[in-house]
Structure formats: structure tokens, C-alpha cells
């Protein structure tokens, strides 16, 4: 499979009153065409900021200060803002965390869908009437694709007339309207209840297969990743700590943080046993020393761990940021 998105040594910093926060510190990742990459980590681990950086959506006081972002052969950090704007929505689309507030309450769903098409779709016919009909047809098709019943009627309705799950679907429909090559789904299910979560994820997986697009699924739910993603990347305190094929990472983690995450998931097979949370707190990202960031919470920590740890190979297609990665699986 060819590489679609390749990020290397990405660094995004926020200048805050307390000091410089490295929200993303040397993140490298790769997404192939048609692949689904899961990105896992707790709140504040830098998952969302990493992909906001890819989209060029980091706003002051945040700033991308280092690294390269190659998408489809072009460095997104190097191109003009107008070009970046054209790529957003057409080639890379993103769905927001909170579906309930991510649609404009003042416009009908049809207007919002239509506007993305107007902005990006070059195949629309020239004449005004033909153009409108084409936009309508495509909008109906997209709503149908995400499973909204009676799309013709629904197009004329406003977001408040839809349920949370439907709004999430509509947001996905808008994101997919121009058939992007990459969909970044930022916690697409956090605002939804469990049954709807499953439906929305099924929908994304299904559409991915049909349109052959790549998906980055940002979540803090390892279960979701296990079910839907080919590969997974675990982030902690602004760094990637482990990455590899999903089944291998979940089956035999090579970083104590991943292991801790897996141990803190309730499982029916471990009924009656207490859940083992990861002790301690995420470190303050201001002025972090160059050493293993998980050190203070790590059950395997040694004094020799207080050095800067690089990503190290941990088997075919796998890397982890731990000096004792061989021992983690044991």
C-alpha cells in the first residue's frame, strides 16, 4: 500500500503564561491509502492537537514549530493558505468531537451539505438550475449513504430537529461529501450513547471499505480500536509511546503505558477482580525534562530510565518508546 500521510518529528507548542507547553513533541506517523489508524491516549496526550496540526488548524497561542507533514507527496507546512484551504474538506476531512454543536444551528442541513460541494466539487455542472439539481442529488445521496431516512425531506430541516446520533451521521455525510482520501474522525462517538456509538463506527468502517479512503480514528477507547483499526498508535504526554498492528499491540503490549491502559479496561473474563488503574497523574507538560515521561507512573521504572528514550523497534512493523520493552510483555 502506498503512503498517503507521513508525519515526521512534528512539534506543536503552546505559549502559555506558565511556560511553553509542547503539546506534540516529535510525533512521527504514517497512514497508508485505505488504511485505518487508531490513535489512543488519555485527554491531553496530544492526539487531537497532532491532527489539528496536520490540518493546519492550530490557532494561537499554539504553533507548529518543527517537523514535516507530507500528504500525497506535498508538505502541508510549506503550501499557501489558499491551497491548504482547498485540501481541507476535499482531500482531508475531519469530524469534530461534539456532534451536537458541530452543525450550524442557523442553516438547514441541506444548505450545509451543499456549501461543501459548492466549495470543493469541480464536477458540478455550470448552469444554475443544473447545478442546484446536482447539489441536491448529491446531498440526498450522502444522507442516504449515512442512513438518514427520507433524505429529501430531511435536507430542509435544521440541526435541532435531529437526534444526537443523526447529527453525528450528518457531520460524517458533510465530511464525506467530496469523497476525501483521508477522514480524521476525532472521537466520533464521545457524545453518543453506546448503541448509537456502535452504529456510527460501523458506518465509518463500512463507508471506508466502499470508498477506499483512509481513516484516522482518534479515541480513548481501546475496544473501538480493536474492532475497527488495522494499526494503532498510543500517545502519552505529547509523544507516541507505542505503535504497531492492532492485534499485536493489544495482544502483547510493549510499553508499560499500553499495558496499563489494557489492564484498566473492565472485562467479563476477569469478573470479581478489581480493575487496576494506572496510578499517578499525567505529568505537567510545562518544562518537561528530556527523559522517559511515563517514569513517575511506571511499575518497571529503573533509575537508568531517566534518560531520553527514542522509539525503538519492537518486532516487525512495531515500535515502542521503552528501554525495557522486552520485559513489558512478560
Amino acid at each position: 500500500m502506498t503512503v498517503l500521510l507521513e508525519v515526521s518529528s512534528l512539534r506543536t507548542e503552546f505559549a502559555t503564561r506558565a511556560g511553553l507547553v509542547r503539546a506534540v513533541d516529535g510525533v512521527s506517523l504514517r497512514v497508508s491509502r485505505g488504511e485505518c489508524l487508531g490513535v489512543v491516549g488519555e485527554s491531553g496526550s496530544g492526539k487531537s492537537v497532532t491532527f489539528a496540526s496536520v490540518m493546519g488548524l492550530v490557532r494561537p497561542p499554539g504553533k507548529v514549530t518543527g517537523g514535516t507533514i507530507f500528504f500525497d507527496g506535498r508538505d502541508l507546512r510549506d503550501i499557501a493558505p489558499e491551497e491548504m484551504r482547498a485540501i481541507r474538506g476535499r482531500d482531508i476531512a475531519m469530524t469534530m468531537q461534539d456532534a451536537l454543536t458541530a452543525l450550524n444551528p442557523a442553516l438547514t442541513v441541506g444548505e450545509q451539505l451543499g456549501e461543501v460541494l459548492v466549495a470543493h466539487d469541480e464536477t458540478l455542472p455550470a448552469g444554475r438550475a443544473a447545478r442546484r439539481a446536482a447539489i441536491r442529488d448529491k446531498s440526498v445521496e450522502m444522507l442516504g449513504l449515512v442512513g438518514i431516512p427520507a433524505p429529501e425531506t430531511r435536507l430542509r430541516q435544521y440541526p435541532h430537529e435531529f437526534s444526537g446520533g443523526m447529527r453525528q451521521r450528518i457531520m460524517i455525510a458533510i465530511a464525506l461529501a467530496c469523497r476525501p482520501q483521508l477522514l480524521i474522525a476525532d472521537e466520533p462517538t464521545t457524545a453518543l450513547d453506546v448503541t448509537i456509538q456502535a452504529q456510527v463506527l460501523e458506518l465509518i468502517t463500512d463507508i471506508r471499505a466502499r470508498l477506499g479512503m483512509a481513516v484516522v480514528l482518534i479515541t480513548h477507547d481501546l475496544g473501538v480500536v480493536a474492532e475497527h483499526c488495522d494499526r494503532v498508535m498510543v500517545m502519552y504526554a505529547g509523544q507516541v509511546v507505542e505503535e504497531g498492528p492492532t492485534d499485536q499491540v493489544i495482544g502483547a503490549p510493549r510499553h508499560p503505558y499500553t499495558r496499563g491502559l489494557l489492564a484498566s479496561i473492565p472485562r467479563p473474563s476477569l469478573r470479581g477482580q478489581p480493575i487496576r488503574p494506572i496510578m499517578g497523574q499525567v505529568p505537567d507538560l510545562v518544562g518537561l525534562p528530556a527523559q522517559c515521561r511515563f517514569h513517575s507512573r511506571c511499575p518497571l521504572a529503573l533509575p537508568s530510565c531517566l534518560v531520553e528514550v527514542p522509539m525503538m523497534a519492537a518486532g516487525p512493523g512495531r515500535r515502542a518508546r521503552c528501554l525495557r520493552l522486552e520485559e513489558v510483555a512478560a
Partner: peptide, 14 residues
């Protein structure tokens, strides 16, 4: 600052 404005930016709105 609202989510739908951010969403519009993510879809390439100027």
C-alpha cells in the same frame, strides 16, 4: 470559538 465554526474551517471554509 464554537465547534461548528471549527468544523467549517476543517472543511476548508475561508
Amino acid at each position: 470559538e464554537l465547534e461548528y465554526v471549527e468544523a467549517a474551517r476543517a472543511l476548508g471554509a475561508g
